[in-house]
């Protein structure tokens, strides 16, 4: 297999995200449209029907460092969410506890991370009481170039 370098791989993912129709339950794009290193990505997940997350929009931050896609992106919920695998103080997602993502492979994409998070929302163990709508985690994420 020919190995696609990080930057061109992320450009492909960006194009797919730009082309995607709104029919989906999630969308994503670059957090900073001028960041030619394509480091930070921002995404929205629509809470699935018939779950405690229904009718809510969740903002997610993903960070793809120099070693992506060999190494998984770091993922944080910006919108507060009570769900297993999400650190309740910082919103950071522990991908090793998310089904389908626990063994990262370079073929995985940002879109697949979002799909896995959305799937997690539909699981039994995620049927938990939720914080107020639209509340966000107030933290400065480590090595974030621009604190939120």
């Amino acid at each position: 297999m020919v190995e696609v370098p990080r930057n061109f791989r992320l450009l492909e993912e960006l194009e797919q995200g730009e082309k995607a129709t709104s029919a989906g339950y999630c969308s994503y794009g670059l957090a900073d449209l001028e960041d030619s290193l394509m480091y930070n990505w921002t995404a929205l997940i629509l809470g699935p029907l018939n779950t405690p997350f229904e009718n809510r929009l969740y903002q997610v931050l993903l960070r793809c460092d120099e070693n992506y896609p060999k190494v998984a992106p770091k993922v944080w919920f910006i919108t507060q969410i009570n769900m297993p695998g999400v650190n309740q103080k910082t919103g950071e997602v522990d991908l090793s506890t998310i089904e389908y993502m626990n063994k990262w492979k370079p073929s995985y994409t940002i879109h697949m991370v979002l799909e896995a998070l959305s799937e997690k929302m539909t699981r039994k163990e995620s049927r938990l009481p939720q914080p107020d709508k639209n509340s966000t985690y107030k933290v400065i994420r480590p090595d974030s170039k621009k604190p939120e």
Binding site: S22, L49, N50, N55, R56, L57
Partner: peptide
């Protein structure tokens, strides 16, 4: 996308 009134 912006409102949440759709009662499915």
């Amino acid at each position: 996308e912006t409102s949440n009134w759709i009662k499915a």
